[in-house]
Design a protein around this nucleic acid. Sequence first.
DNA 1: GTCATGTTATGATAATTATCATATCGTTAT
DNA 2: ATAACGATATGATAATTATCATAACATGAC
Lengths: 228, 228
Amino acid sequence: MDPSCSCELCELKGLFIETLDDDHLDIICSAKIEKEFNTGEVILKEGMQIQDFVYLKSGLVKLYRSDSGGKEQIITIAKPFDYVSLLSVFSNNTYNYSVTALEDSVTCNIKMSEVKKLVLENGKLALNLLRQMSLVADQIILDSLEIRKKHLRGRVAFLLIYFSQDIYQSSEFDLPLTRKEMAEYVGMTTENVIRTLSEFRRDGILKIYGKTIQVANMDTLKSIAEFG
Amino acid sequence: MDPSCSCELCELKGLFIETLDDDHLDIICSAKIEKEFNTGEVILKEGMQIQDFVYLKSGLVKLYRSDSGGKEQIITIAKPFDYVSLLSVFSNNTYNYSVTALEDSVTCNIKMSEVKKLVLENGKLALNLLRQMSLVADQIILDSLEIRKKHLRGRVAFLLIYFSQDIYQSSEFDLPLTRKEMAEYVGMTTENVIRTLSEFRRDGILKIYGKTIQVANMDTLKSIAEFG
DNA sequence: GTCATGTTATGATAATTATCATATCGTTAT
DNA sequence: ATAACGATATGATAATTATCATAACATGAC
């Protein structure tokens, strides 16, 4: 096996690679290209030809769409293990969303032609991809239904809980989104995101130091996310 | 080949079956069960164990979630060729949504264990499923983003255009949804759906005879869907 | 440093949407 | 037939949210 290949050490091995035998692993290893992106750099652009299967090795990214007026809607925030180029990849020729790094990130890119070849040859990999796609798509759809039925306070609470619990596993964290991006994610205006955060601060639910957020009262935050 | 099997005649053959050779087709054919549902009958229920891969052979169905308060949110309307049990099916043990027939419908059910076995053996089928899942999930996500950014009039217009063009290919059709279901689909109240329809009628955009809708001015309807 | 620009912040107001009340119409059950 | 119920319909009002205006603050460009 190619000694320069580090796939067998990659923490994503379990998802994508455990189903591959050594021969196939070697193919992936020599075919893959790692790319590094700084915070704010664009990884994929809406309309671009889909050439690679891209997954996130480390970092944090946002998937979003831009409309003709330049306004953006964030579809989801993806951390490693959430595939990045999952949507569209098997059905479309071009991306119908863009991806930008929210933190310094590393992606691993494999030509779609290689992935398709492997799927044809390796049923376990195929099942794994089906499972993963199903999971990711489901989560995006359910989250968007959840967000839709909440009022503004509930939406902001939902987003904060998501970052605190799912992304950073800590009650204090540096929010990698601007207030504007928060608004684009949960479907409200920037002003109202800011106002809602201020309310939460006044109510003693949050402590806010610029982008650093400390959740002082998670129980209340959760009840706001759930009921109002 | 089993002479009672009609799969090779099924119009869904192209999607699910063209990738199968005769042996595999025979397996599917003898394993599949067709089920008929009348309008209003429940096909799948949220929380139920997932046992079968279910796809819609004819008819029209809604996929939806119910919250604790009994309120429902419609995720999507599916016609034949849109797989019904696609979401969750490869990643979950239970459905996280329900499915009900909006018109008399026929489903074709195949045990998931059979489908998984076939995926393991048949790479073309796997790729076909990946493509189809990708397509369906993408469409649901994009539609929900579209709906989210519109005002009430735009949402109702979007829904009417969808039924007129995508489902019935006619400017006059019987809407298979109640006003309440329309509201559950586009995220607004029943009263406001009714009010908006009345507005459209007053503006000469629609003619409404109960559930029968005639789009009198598609251009205006489209510009409302697009701009407001 | 200072300028320009974008982000955060807050208030006043306007627009949008939901809620509540009430009435009519249709359908189904008895 | 008629009672009961849900769906459709409309208006008045309340609640929610967006828009507009303004200002403080931070950040990077020069």
